[in-house]
Amino acid sequence: MSDVTERIRSEMAAVFGVAAADIPADAAPGRIEKWNSLGHMQLIVALEEAFKIRFGDDDLIRLVSLPEITATVTRKLGGQP
């Protein structure tokens, strides 16, 4: 598991109020109780602050799983997609 994924998982744990260990590799909205529309926005804000990145309008609707988020954050950090 990459360092980026672990950091994202840590942010998710804080936003959704669950243990990081309970967030599966394929975590997605609806499968974590608080990952709803509002929780999604809160996660976006937390990730932007944690990684010092800025998501685009189109990113928001496409970030529907932990792998998708990891790929997008990695790309914005200048790493491999």
Partner: peptide, 18 residues
């Protein structure tokens, strides 16, 4: 809510109850 989970996975889009 159950259908939305499947819908999101099928369309790869964050579509919520609101």
């Amino acid at each position: 809510l159950t259908s939305l989970i499947a819908y999101r996975e099928r369309h790869k889009a964050m579509v919520g109850l609101p």
